[in-house]
Nucleic acid binder design. Sequence first.
RNA 1: GCCCCCAUCGUCUAGUGGACUAGGACGCAGCCCUUUCAAGGCUACGACCGGGGUUCGAAUCCCCGUGGGGGCACCA
Length: 489
Amino acid sequence: MAPSPTGRFHLGSARTALFDFLLARKTGGQFILRLEDTDQKRFVEGSEEEIMRSLDWLGITPDESPIHGGRFGPYRQTERRELYQSHAKALVEKGHAYPCFCTPERLEQSRKDQEARKVDRVRYDGLCRALDPSDAAKRVASGEKYVIRFKMPHEGSTTAHDHLRGDIVTENKYLDDNVILKSDGLPTYHLAAMVDDHEMEITHVMRGSEWLSTFPLHVNIVRAFGWEEPVWIHLSLFLKPSGKGKMSKRDNADVMKDGRTVFVDDMKDLGYTSEGVLNWIALMGWGVAEDDVMSLDDMIQRFSIDTLTPSPAAINFQRLDHFNGTHIRLLTTEDLSARIKPYFVAAGLPVEDEALLKITPLIRERLVTLDDCLTFASFFFKDAVSPTPDDLIAKGLDAKQSAEIARKCFEIVSALPDLSHQTAEPPMRAYVESAGLNANQVFGILRVAVTGQKVSPPLFESMEIIGREKVLARLQDAITILENLSVSP
RNA sequence: GCCCCCAUCGUCUAGUGGACUAGGACGCAGCCCUUUCAAGGCUACGACCGGGGUUCGAAUCCCCGUGGGGGCACCA
């Protein structure tokens, strides 16, 4: 994969990386990370690190990269500039490209003129294309500033083959003489990517379909060099959740309002698992007929470039939540415990590993994101909970009656030789029965008293983990709250 | 404006001329299970963009519309 370090690493790049990785594993090839850092103006400090961090987290670490090395390095394009310059020169010598001395001002003027004439497509007017090659060479030698443009044929058409879309035929008259080497001596994407793909022996090019419009240019460059073409695959685009428009980095602000993100590096903090994210993005642009819950290994087994889909796909965060929850449930108790522990620690709760191992099975199927563990299990680690009086009063009863029930619960637990879910439940049920109450009322009060909240993991199992002493203390607190309520309404 | 790509339930998709009464998943609704919330099980709702062809037969092939998307830089 070959991202440019010009911003944050988002879902679309991650999906491309995943498919690259899967294809490499499937075919016994190498998964390479190449950084397309030829635009110095747009370079963003730290984005290279973010790309690698994101790939690592997803579990698709490159085999070759700027930091991992490899036999095709260097893997940053700015470190390969001579390579592109010599290739650009070769193209000029073969008559497939030419130096252009037009100033940005002249180009701007030409553009304006064309717009005024309402031409269909604004493009380079070809002034320097008409120059005598030896004259041009002299001007270059004299130190005049120039760029190199690719000489597109004016006649005929270009047929480019995409593995998903078949032949794409473009009339050459619609094409432009694009700049392939900039005046700063660095190449544009068009040259750099083609040269590197060839030099690095890239067999398959998978990229977003926003590249379709420059596809004819690219195949013309490859053919001008006389190189063998890779298999070209233009992947489906990711659309905004609304389906209106391409998903972009700028959409993150909107998405964040709902606690979502399009940046892979933020996913972990939001409680997403790499398994969930991977499964989610894999299924956009790839049609899998069978069971769609897949691990990375499953994906490697099933991946095929023949089952990729060309149409744009709207991202759907509800689906991410579904896959995240599903993969959380697939985790072992030990693994899940280790993954949720940092959230308790970050919240300043004194989490004990032994207790956590017992708690994890109780909350596992309730978690959509890992940080949900806080809402479901924080009460285990607190000294005391602070239920609201409203929550403590059972439906259909008043404070006095609720206090009575809490007192009875206290008595039952006190009478127990030891507190476990097996020992506590039968006497509680017997009490519910004999008092003519319903289980919802009694267990509701007990739940709020013990956990401080109306929604919790299974009550008796939770009480067992909290321990008799703490349970009694919390019940006592609840009784006090309810009694204060009934004497001073 | 011009060029290009795409088109099956709200969303992601299966489907490659007959096995389609169009399958699955998410979401949504209901039921079951149940001490809460989940999870799980079951059921319901829900689509071949329109029009022409080709063919004995079209979701599938062709054409034209329409709609959606992308691109038109010394950015990638």
